[in-house]
C-alpha cells in the first residue's frame, strides 16, 4: 500500500499514527509539495485534487486523511476499538473528526497560515476563534479520558496531530485549557508510536518556525 505524505503535515501524521496503531506497514512515499511532486500527471491521475495524504491500496486511491483512517480500520483492523462498532459511540467519533477538520484545524489554518505563507500580521479576531475552538474541545473532554469516550479512538489520533501543531504557536497557551492539556499529555504517553507524530511536529517547526 503506497502512502503519499509529508511528515510535517498534521493530517498525514494522523494517518501514520493510525497505521502504527493497527500494525499496518505502509510503503511511505514522501511527497515534496514545494517541488510540485503532487502535480505530476501520475499523481493527478491518482488524485485529481492533488492533496496529501493520498493512499493507493493496490489501485484503489483515496484521499482525505480522516476517510483514509476509517478505511484502514474497516479494511485491516475490523476488531480494533479505534473506530467503535456501536453506532452511538461511532457517531461521537465522527462528530469529533468533523470538528477537527471543520473547526479546530480550520481555525488554526485561518489564523496561522497567512502569517507563515503570506507574512501577514496576526489577526486577533482569528486567534479568538481558535481559542473558542479549544474551549469547545475542553468541554468535550469533561467527563471522558479520551476525545470520544474512555478509550483511544481515531478522534484522538486526528485531534492530537492538530493540537501538537498548534502548540508550536508561541502566543498560544494550551494550559489555559486544563482538560485539553491533560488529554494531550495522556496521548503522548499512550498513543502507539507517538514519536512518529513528534518527529513530524519537529520537522514542521524547523521548516516554518525557525
Amino acid at each position: 500500500m503506497d502512502f503519499y505524505y509529508s511528515a510535517g503535515s498534521a493530517p498525514c501524521r494522523s494517518v501514520l499514527l493510525t497505521a502504527k496503531a493497527l500494525g499496518i506497514e505502509l510503503n511511505l512515499k514522501s511527497t515534496n509539495l514545494m517541488a510540485g511532486e503532487h502535480l505530476t500527471p501520475e499523481y493527478l491521475k491518482m488524485n485529481p485534487q492533488h492533496t496529501i495524504p493520498t493512499l493507493n491500496d493496490h489501485g484503489f486511491s483515496l484521499w482525505e486523511s480522516r476517510a483514509i483512517m476509517v478505511y484502514l480500520v474497516e479494511k485491516y483492523g475490523k476488531t480494533s476499538s479505534l473506530y467503535p462498532t456501536d453506532v452511538q459511540r461511532r457517531a461521537v467519533v465522527n462528530q469529533r473528526l468533523y470538528f477537527d477538520m471543520g473547526t479546530l484545524y480550520q481555525r488554526f489554518s485561518e489564523y496561522f497560515y497567512p502569517q507563515i505563507f503570506a507574512k501577514a500580521p496576526a489577526d486577533p479576531e482569528k486567534l479568538k476563534r481558535l481559542e473558542e475552538a479549544f474551549g469547545f474541545l475542553n468541554t468535550f473532554l469533561e467527563g471522558s479520558k479520551y476525545a470520544a469516550g474512555d478509550s483511544l479512538t481515531l478522534a484522538d489520533l486526528a485531534l492530537v496531530a492538530t493540537v501538537s501543531t498548534i502548540e508550536l504557536v508561541k502566543e498560544f497557551d494550551i494550559n489555559k485549557y486544563p482538560k485539553v492539556a491533560a488529554w494531550y499529555k495522556l496521548c503522548k504517553e499512550t498513543v502507539p508510536g507517538y514519536d512518529i507524530n513528534q518527529a513530524g511536529v519537529d520537522e514542521f517547526k524547523a521548516k516554518f518556525l525557525s
Binding site: Q49, F60, L62, W63, E64, R66, A67, I68, V70, Y71, E74, K75, Y98, M101, G102, Q106
Partner: peptide
C-alpha cells in the same frame, strides 16, 4: 461496501473542507 463507503466519506470531507469552505 468498504471501498464505496470510503469514497462516500472522501466526498463528505471534500464537501466540508473544500466545497462548503
Amino acid at each position: 461496501d468498504i471501498q464505496e463507503r470510503a469514497l462516500t466519506n472522501q466526498r463528505l470531507y471534500f464537501d466540508l473542507g473544500t466545497l462548503y469552505t
